[in-house]
């Protein structure tokens, strides 16, 4: 079963807000000068910000903010966030892999930016919605 795709927009302002809230002030997430110096195409989103957005998608699918029991991802490609009003767009979709007898639902999640996968092995286990 496929779950409805959810789309998230990420701007530089979002990265600044996330840096403050999370305590991750790595300059690759706010300074083009620093990001390009270390070989990146430009400022990139925190991997954990992308994962947080995927977490929003998962809790929305679950229909409960406290339903996630296991959640893991591999970061495979950076999300480059241009310094403009549009920013970057992340699309999150998922398929239900398994519904267990213990009342758990396992999801295989896909997250893409500009048509390219930014995560692999993205999996979440949620309590099956009642």
């Amino acid at each position: 079963m496929e779950l409805p795709t959810q789309t998230f927009r990420v701007t530089r302002a979002d990265l600044v807000r996330y840096a403050g809230a999370s305590g991750d002030f790595n300059p690759i997430h706010w300074s083009d000068r620093f990001a390009t110096k270390v070989g990146l195409p430009g400022v990139i989103a925190h991997g954990m910000f992308t994962m947080a957005l995927v977490g929003r998608a998962v809790t929305a699918w679950a229909g409960a903010p406290d339903a996630v029991v296991d959640f893991g991802v591999r970061f495979t490609r950076p999300v480059v966030v241009p310094d403009d009003d549009q920013g970057a767009e992340i699309e999150v979709s998922a398929v239900v892999r398994e519904v267990t007898e213990e009342g758990l639902t396992r999801l295989d999640v896909t997250a893409t930016c500009l048509g390219e996968k930014v995560l692999s092995q993205a999996r979440a286990t949620i309590r099956t919605p009642r």
């Binding site: 979002d14 403050g20 809230a21 957005l53 809790t59 903010p65 406290d66």
Partner: peptide, 25 residues
């Protein structure tokens, strides 16, 4: 609340103690 706001998570259980208590937290 600050973290939830930063990631755009608007579910009341992240912000309102009464909403969280209604879920048993």
């Amino acid at each position: 609340r600050e973290f939830a706001t930063a990631i755009g998570a608007t579910d009341p259980a992240h912000h309102d103690p009464d909403a969280a208590r209604a879920l048993g937290h």
